[in-house]
Amino acid sequence: MLLGRTANDLYWMSRYIERAENMARLVDAGLRLALTRTESASDEWSSVVASAGAKAAYEARYSSYTAEAVGDFLLRDSTYPSSVISCIEAGRSNARMVRTALTRENWESINETWMAFKTLLAPEIDQRELPSILDQIKRQTALIRGAFHGTMLRNEIFDFAQLGIYVERADNTARILDVKYYVLLPSLSWVGSSLDNYQWESILRSVSAHRSYRWVYEADYKPRNIAHFLILNRRMPRSLAFCYRMIAEGLELLAEDYGERHTCHDTLDEIRRQLAPDSIDQIFENGLHEFLSHFIRCNNRFGEEVAEDYRFF
């Protein structure tokens, strides 16, 4: 038995914490690229902001893209609802409302992270400290994930929190790809220039997959493989297919436990059909951008249906 409001808080708790981590990873990838390609640094920061889905909010505050401004905005601007500091504030507040549903370890890891981020992100960021700050953010969120997976009973509470994680992550990965989809298009270059190589590595780095890519595919970056890795590979923990494998697992268990299926189950099936393992050529043929924007819309709709079907409100 779970309150609809509790399910809602669990779902959003996970989404916000996942988002905080993704923000840090995006800034990290941007930093890397800007360091290696100083002449186009401003372009890189602008695509980081676009990947974060924060273009309009950013441009309402700043007139140019600099490392300082982007870092400040995405990490510690409390007026921007998806900055790391806002995410942890919101996630912790959701967690506080569902404390009764969390293990002590899980709650403490979130509360501790909230305290740590408040101290860490209170002063203006010294650029020399940025790598270490990003590191600490990733480490704290890893702590939360560890406590969550290591101690939570695999019941409906877990399922709703898990749904939040993977809906958010799928959205994040799809948006990263969509912002950079043009560098993956075959017409541009089948043989990567060094510029392309940086761009490709950046995409992989922003989902922490630049090393694992080489374990799965050949050492050279190829756009088709990168797209396959991030969209269809079932073993890559930030790919769309992986996210939906996890979502399906939770949602099927809920259907079993509750003895009822909802609209969101149909949407789930539909999305999983789009993510068939051998469909990468089809995706490129129909248009990568079209595929990704369609996926982002489906993913959003799926989230809304879950909220409605399980009486979040």
Partner: peptide, 30 residues
């Protein structure tokens, strides 16, 4: 929150509850 947790019961707010058929009921995922 602490007491609800320790007792193993739900912690509800006013908007989770409704009067249905002469009883008070809470909105759950089912």
């Amino acid at each position: 929150a602490f007491l609800a947790d320790q007792m193993g019961v739900e912690l509800v707010e006013g908007h989770d509850l409704r009067v249905i058929d002469g009883h008070v009921a809470m909105r759950t995922t089912q």
